[in-house]
Design a protein around this nucleic acid. Sequence first.
DNA 1: ATAATTATGTTGCATTTGCAACATTTTGAG
DNA 2: CTCAAAATGTTGCAAATGCAACATAATTAT
Lengths: 216, 216
Amino acid sequence: MEYREINLFEGISEADLARMITCFGAKIKRLREGEVVCDYSDTGDDVGVMLEGSASMIRTDENGEVAVMELFSDGDIFGEVLAFSNAAGDSVKVVAESDCKVMFIKYGQITKRCENACEHHSRLVSNMFGLIARKTLSLSQRIEILSKKTTREKLMYYFNILAKKHGREFDLPMSVTRLAEYICADRSAMTRELSRMQADGLVEINKKRIKLKKTF
Amino acid sequence: MEYREINLFEGISEADLARMITCFGAKIKRLREGEVVCDYSDTGDDVGVMLEGSASMIRTDENGEVAVMELFSDGDIFGEVLAFSNAAGDSVKVVAESDCKVMFIKYGQITKRCENACEHHSRLVSNMFGLIARKTLSLSQRIEILSKKTTREKLMYYFNILAKKHGREFDLPMSVTRLAEYICADRSAMTRELSRMQADGLVEINKKRIKLKKTF
DNA sequence: ATAATTATGTTGCATTTGCAACATTTTGAG
DNA sequence: CTCAAAATGTTGCAAATGCAACATAATTAT
């Protein structure tokens, strides 16, 4: 079962779109690479949807340590309501990785009823449900990976998810450095483990090309 | 900002409820403690909502190892679409922890338009959006915790989330054993770390009562 | 083209952690 | 109440991992 290809505006005509956007109180912003899409120290309860381009959610703690928390591309949905509880009070921002287009909707507008009983309203909410369901799935997936005890298990589990999608041989969808961040492992320790896995005949690695020798 | 108290049926009268449930193709099941709520080897794309009671999602791998993946109680939403990709092909089931009442809705019914243009339909979707947003938040939160490198950091981050909600002194909302599962640490190693943290004057622990001596 | 920046790969070492094997306490069922 | 089962606490030890300090390759900017 595949739930990709979810389009936020599916089933909504171009003509209705403008009207709907007003009714929803939605705002569309265009941002250049490097610009701050939103800053969680001052945003209210806006929900953002990436329409074009990509962005990353970045935390900076009191020591100036920087960490990439999440990456967003087409169709990804984000917002304070969906994010986390910033228990440490760190600075958290979403920064454009490339030029991009983002739609912002007030969270309250989604859950509250449209006074105009606008039919597109409900359509958009349905579509947004699809987007957030996809996000939930990818978050659950990452938790599954992080819940493995060893780096090897984390990698194998992740590789198996990719293999399920693309077959036994596939390309990593991110850089090695990002992969280490994704599985929350030290980059050098992860590289070491990758070498061992290759030595043990579990995988064959060639740059970003991964060939799984054993699936479970 | 607090988004608790989300009720799936908020804004829907008792009278409309029955009609709506038909229109939605929703099914309400009652289960006794220990019964299987659903089995991911045969469920389709149903989305479940816990109306009463609690349940846990349990994975059993080929070695018979059992792991609790998620816990659900009132208002929690779950389903294969929202769950993970079972890359290892393990057996995954949701089991009732207590007698409970669960509503199942076909995923397709949520994202597809209601032919009857039933107004409650959109209301329910909005409400479900609230439920899934809450789930997303708690998943993000757990990822934040799991992304910390040491057990101490994981615990401190989690304690700070709790402190933000309940103040510097609070009770753990789960048993120590469950806490270890939640942060994906070995129980005995976690207990050892808790002792050290107490020795280092970071916290005071008394059964489930935690008193944070230092917040960050 | 060249320099600068970023990504990648390797290794020693100290720390953290999982694991196993216990003792002890608490809880729950009958 | 009594007993069994589950939860909790402790410790030694081996394995896994983070960290630092590198070298080298690849990419990007000027």
